[in-house]
């Protein structure tokens, strides 16, 4: 048997110049930015014993604390669901208008994307502080903050999904004489539904975690209790709160996996 002629790889292909180059650049960037921002990795390791000390104190969760945090945890979940849902409702039309395969008007798309970029730039802590100032301490401020945060995140995730769909069914619906909304309903929605659901739940999960942090600013929910336990050095209570949050996140993850399988 004669060996078939194999084309020669170029010099750069043979030595993987691209891959090596990108890795080197990335490492350089990492080192450069940690130097500039004054991050001292050494300090992280030299103060490691304090960290382990904290872990030891957290390793005996105060289980008696569980009944007390059920109510605020419940409030947190409600805040997260409400905020994510409101954000999503507004995100869907924006995502459609930002998708380059659905909207050919470059100006419209540009303006929509600019708005979305702007929304994503606003730090959620800043938003929470503003809304606490406006609505007072409580979950209203939290819900609005989470809604805006979800809006920014979901609209981007959604339009990127929309841009990957198969355009064939859209062409068919167009040829049938369907209106724009009908085309989107019939030909776009079924193609993106399961990814939408999983991104929705992913955002919900992030919001459950985020709302614990927002509680710091008085935006309601479990975060208020987290902050209290930390400031009182009650680390065994902190541990309970973290574990409870973990359970919620795991439940959402389970639901997400299940729904994705069902909707596929």
């Amino acid at each position: 048997m004669t060996t078939p002629e194999i084309p020669q790889r170029s010099w750069s292909q043979r030595w993987h110049v691209k891959a090596v180059g990108w890795t080197a650049l990335l490492v350089a960037l990492l080192m450069g930015s940690s130097k500039m921002t004054g991050v001292d990795v050494g300090m992280f390791f030299s103060n490691f014993d304090q960290f382990t000390n904290l872990l030891v104190r957290m390793s005996q969760p105060a289980w008696s604390y569980v009944p007390i945090i059920i109510q605020p945890l419940y409030e947190t979940i409600q805040m997260a669901i409400l905020g994510t849902t409101i954000g999503t409702v507004f995100a869907v039309p924006f995502a459609v208008l930002a998708a380059s395969n659905l909207v050919h008007n470059r100006w419209l798309r540009g303006i929509i994307r600019l708005i979305l970029d702007l929304v994503r730039t606003l730090p959620d802590l800043l938003l929470a502080a503003i809304f606490v100032a406006i609505f007072g301490i409580g979950s209203t401020a939290g819900v609005i903050t989470l809604a805006i945060f979800s809006f920014g995140m979901i609209s981007k995730l959604f339009y990127e999904v929309i841009e990957t769909i198969d355009m064939g069914p859209l062409e068919a619906m167009e040829s049938v004489g369907a209106s724009k909304v009908t085309i989107i309903w019939y030909a776009v929605l079924p193609q993106i539904m399961n990814q939408f659901v999983s991104y929705f739940l992913y955002t919900l999960e992030i919001n459950v975690r985020a709302s614990t942090v927002l509680g710091y600013l008085g935006a309601g929910g479990i975060g208020v209790f987290l902050q209290r336990s930390l400031s009182e050095f009650d680390y065994n209570k902190t541990a309970v709160i973290i574990l409870a949050t973990l359970v919620v996140v795991m439940v959402i993850d389970g639901v997400s996996n299940h729904l994705r399988r069902v909707l596929l």
Binding site: D166, G168, P169, E171, A172, E174, S175, V176, G177, Y186, A187, P190, Q191, M193
Partner: peptide, 18 residues
């Protein structure tokens, strides 16, 4: 106009998940 003109495609262009 499009309503009275049907179109058939090489790749069928059905909505696959429906």
């Amino acid at each position: 106009l499009r309503r009275k003109i049907g179109m058939i495609f090489q790749d069928f262009n059905l909505i696959k998940r429906s």
